[in-house]
Simulated scan of single mutants.
Amino acid sequence: MFSKPFLLQPRTVKETGNRKTVLDEAYTLFPDRDALLLKDFPVRVSVGDPLYKQSSGLVLSPVNGIASLEHTEEGSKIRIVQDGNFIGSKPWIPKVLKKEEALEPMDRLGLVSLDFPEHSLLSYFKSRQKTSLIILAPFTRNQDVDYLPELRKNLECHARFLEVLKSLFPEAQIRDYISGLKSPVKNYAYPWGIPEYFLSQTEKLPFSKIKEILYLGPETLYNLYRALFADFPFIEREIALYFLGKNGGLRKADSTVRIRNGQSLKFLFEEYGPKYSNFTLNSFYEKNPVRDIKKGFYWDIRQNYSLVFLTKHDSGRREFPCVECGECSYNCPTQANPMALVSSFGNFNSSLCMECGICTFLCPSTISLRTRIRTWKEANHGF
């Protein structure tokens, strides 16, 4: 029996101010140390030109401009000074696709599995050639942005992609929660968007089976359909904005912001800087570092999906001994019993742990249980 999923429910705040893209900041990309550069820099580039290839796939130029390569002690970076206008969104045009017509754009247009961001989408598809089950899921990992309305507005495109899946994987069963099957829950609650959890709840499969299944969440499908039916490269991402006030109240902007890869957040910091001095990335469950907005930041669309503004940050917080309150294990959605790692309370069940971060988020002693979990898994299982 699984515990009830934990839900962090923010209030909504209306947007204020005029949000404009600031073009006086170069777009800045940070290749992995083992990345293969595909240009002789400096060079003039156009939107969608391949810049470098790394383990997560092909990285494309987000704008037209002059790209230069700089080397620092922290590593290399590519800076692109924009000259010209953005290319805007294109309408999706449904069309019948052959196998190769579906696979080729995945690589050429730099698509990534946003459910498993360490994989390029093409390599992810190839790694699942023998799959017997395909899941088209309704939720992203944290559901900061709901992509279902956009997908359901384009059901003819969705139908064309289902035909491609049937031709690529003729023996596989397709479970379609986008247009066919009813959503397993009325209202999303974390961690329903984590693939392992979704599969365990809908298909009753153990977490270890995730490597045998082709799993495509709605954000992955959204960017894939933009590529297949509008020839749009993966150079930007919709992000959610959150605001954490002095009283601890969490608010969420009522609309998203579209950010290009490598774009400076200067325009957002100028708008919200007078009230919010710090920020962090993605989810509260992940415990990302808190940063000073005065130091600036360049967005990575493969790693980041939401931005959290903070009015203050207590940098002196430290871990305290476990008080055995039981909050971590009581609220664990899979009953993995994380409390066992910091007390003598039973045993930790690693096969049920999906590292959702709820235990760390709830711990009153600010113990990073997720870190303890990863250390334990590495010591006991080598992963």
Results as ranks from 00 to 15, higher is better:
Phe6His: 08
Phe6Leu: 07
Leu7Arg: 05
Leu8Met: 10
Gln9Cys: 12
Glu15Gln: 13
Asn18Pro: 08
Val22Ser: 15
Leu23Met: 12
Arg33Asp: 13
Phe41Ser: 03
Arg44Trp: 07
Pro50Gly: 05
Pro50Met: 08
Lys53Ile: 09
Lys53Cys: 08
Lys53His: 12
Val59Ala: 02
Val59His: 01
Ser61Asp: 00
Pro62Ala: 00
Gly65Lys: 01
Ile66Met: 11
Leu69Glu: 05
Thr72Tyr: 09
Glu73His: 10
Ser76Asn: 11
Lys77Trp: 14
Ile80Cys: 01
Ile87Met: 09
Gly88Arg: 12
Trp92Lys: 03
Ile93Asn: 12
Pro94Ala: 11
Lys95Met: 07
Val96Ser: 15
Lys98Cys: 10
Lys98His: 15
Ala102Leu: 04
Ala102Ser: 10
Ser113Asn: 13
Leu114Ala: 03
Phe116Asn: 02
Phe116Tyr: 11
Ser120Leu: 10
Leu121Pro: 00
Ser123Ile: 11
Lys126Ser: 15
Lys126Glu: 14
Lys130Pro: 02
Leu133His: 09
Ile135Phe: 06
Ile135His: 01
Ala137Ser: 13
Phe139Arg: 00
Phe139Asp: 00
Arg141Tyr: 11
Asn142Leu: 07
Asp146Leu: 04
Asp146Met: 02
Glu150Gly: 04
Glu150Ala: 15
Leu151Val: 03
Arg152Met: 14
Glu156Gln: 15
His158Glu: 03
Phe161Ala: 06
Leu162Tyr: 03
Leu162His: 01
Leu165Ile: 01
Pro170Asp: 05
Pro170Phe: 04
Glu171Asn: 13
Arg175Thr: 10
Tyr177Gln: 07
Lys182Ala: 14
Pro184Phe: 09
Pro184Val: 07
Val185Ala: 09
Val185Arg: 09
Pro191Asp: 07
Gly193Gln: 00
Ile194Arg: 02
Glu196Met: 13
Ser200His: 06
Thr202His: 06
Thr202Gly: 05
Ile213Asp: 00
Leu216Glu: 01
Tyr222Phe: 15
Tyr225Ile: 05
Tyr225Cys: 06
Arg226Asn: 11
Leu228Cys: 06
Phe229Met: 04
Phe229Pro: 00
Phe229Val: 03
Pro233Gln: 07
Glu236Thr: 03
Arg237Ser: 02
Leu241Met: 10
Tyr242Ile: 02
Tyr242Thr: 02
Phe243Leu: 02
Val257Leu: 15
Gln263Cys: 05
Gln263Tyr: 04
Lys266Tyr: 10
Phe267Ile: 02
Phe269Cys: 01
Glu271Val: 09
Gly273Ala: 14
Leu281Pro: 08
Ser283Thr: 06
Tyr285Ile: 04
Lys287Ser: 14
Lys287Met: 14
Lys287Trp: 12
Lys287Ile: 14
Asn288Cys: 10
Asn288Gly: 09
Asn288Trp: 14
Lys294Pro: 08
Ile301Arg: 04
Arg302Trp: 04
Gln303Glu: 14
Tyr305Leu: 08
Leu307Tyr: 02
Leu310Asn: 05
Thr311Arg: 13
Ser315Gln: 11
Phe320Gly: 13
Glu324Cys: 11
Cys325Val: 08
Gly326His: 13
Tyr330Phe: 09
Ala336Pro: 00
Ser343Glu: 01
Gly346Glu: 11
Asn347His: 05
Asn349Val: 10
Ser350Cys: 07
Ser351Met: 10
Glu355Met: 09
Pro364Gly: 04
Ser365Val: 03
Thr366Lys: 15
Thr366Trp: 15
Thr366Gln: 15
Ala379Lys: 15
Ala379Met: 15
His381Lys: 12
